[in-house]
């Protein structure tokens, strides 16, 4: 299952809730305001770093750039993808759950 999160972790518990429900085979993609969660040195970033060993985490590059977040601010191990990468993740996983 590919899980997408589109809320800032500073405004909503959605990222935490998503991470709490991951099952084997899951991956997480941060999009829209969800990309703020990939920022290193934040509580959300720490949460993501601690789950990276078990689940891959991706972040949508165009949404990062739109929000002025440079790649060196992103938590190490989080993979930046473009929209083509988003499509590839959707294809590679058997279903998609959007955490709205």
């Amino acid at each position: 299952m590919l899980h997408t999160v589109n809320k800032s972790p500073f405004a909503s518990l959605t990222l935490t809730q998503c991470l709490n429900h991951l099952a084997p085979g899951a991956a997480v993609l941060l999009i829209e305001d969800g990309v703020y969660g990939a920022t290193a040195g934040t509580g959300a970033g720490t949460q993501i770093a601690s789950c990276l060993g078990r689940f891959p985490v991706y972040v949508l590059g165009p949404d990062l750039e739109a929000r002025g977040i440079s790649h060196n601010q992103v938590v190490e191990g989080v993979v930046t993808v473009d929209y083509a990468g988003f499509v590839k993740l959707v294809v590679e996983h058997d279903a998609v759950q959007s955490w709205l």
Partner: peptide, 9 residues
Amino acid sequence: SAYQFAVAA
């Protein structure tokens, strides 16, 4: 987002 995703797909 939906539009950009559709175009990429």
